[in-house]
Design a protein around this nucleic acid. Structure first.
Lengths: 124, 124
DNA sequence: CTCATTGTTAACCATTTGGTTAAGTTTAAG
DNA sequence: CTTAAACTTAACCAAATGGTTAACAATGAG
């Protein structure tokens, strides 16, 4: 949990692709082999293999090799961290913080968060 | 909220870039103009302009034009939806669903986990 | 009017991404 | 031993991405 910047980057990049999000969704229903994962997708097995690798590198997928089949399952920890990253900006508290910050800028510019220059009220 | 697949795609793609996540973080501190946003970044203004456009297209940023300056502020609604997408897979409830689903699949393959009804409540 | 400020658009470029097919590897089966 | 199955790796390709500089547009200031 210390240096999560690179991890969070991998996580969000991995989730940026619809195919990979669909794989995550699939795995949420239960573990699956590579061919099982590939089955619904209109693309080749190597393509899916790459996607799985990317999810694995992002820590979103763990692979249990049993003989020649690779059993894949979802690992939710990176999802939790992505959720936490997002929650910084979606909580009620931060909404309040945001409003307050803007108010402070209006009241005494230059005192608060960023060195804003003067602030005009939006026109009606 | 009907066809959120494309929206969620735009949102996650937008958040997949570290520069854009940093912009989101910056805007969470309060609104800012384009040059203010660009100031800390070691890249040209047009590069930032493009990032802002992508965030805007994703609905994560709203632009208020006042004369020649564009005041940008964060819009958290897409973040909430991204959070909700993630939460499908990070709640305790779904962890249970996953484990039980795997058990049920082992016990009676062909039955889908979601067809069963005795699930525990999610934890906060 | 003239000039600076604020920002976008255009044209271009290198790298990354997401896909392909073909070949290789490992394991299970006959 | 031979062959099939389950995947991965390699080599390649087109398109998307993220950046650049130069030119353009619109607004505010002198």
């Amino acid at each position: 949990m210390v240096n999560n910047e690179i991890e969070i980057d991998r996580t969000f990049s991995a989730l940026g692709d619809p195919t990979r999000r669909a794989i995550v969704q699939r795995l949420a229903m239960g573990e699956a082999t590579v061919t099982e994962i590939a089955q619904p997708f209109p693309m080749s097995l190597p393509a899916i293999s790459k996607h799985i690798r990317i999810l694995e590198d992002a820590g979103l997928l763990v692979r249990l090799k049993e003989g020649r089949i690779h059993r894949c399952q979802l690992s939710v920890e990176p999802l939790r961290e992505a959720k936490q990253w997002i929650e910084q900006y979606t909580t009620f508290w931060n909404a309040q913080l945001d409003s307050l910050g803007q108010y402070l800028q209006q009241a005494s510019p230059g005192l608060h968060p960023k060195e804003h220059t003067s602030w005009k009220k939006p026109l009606p």
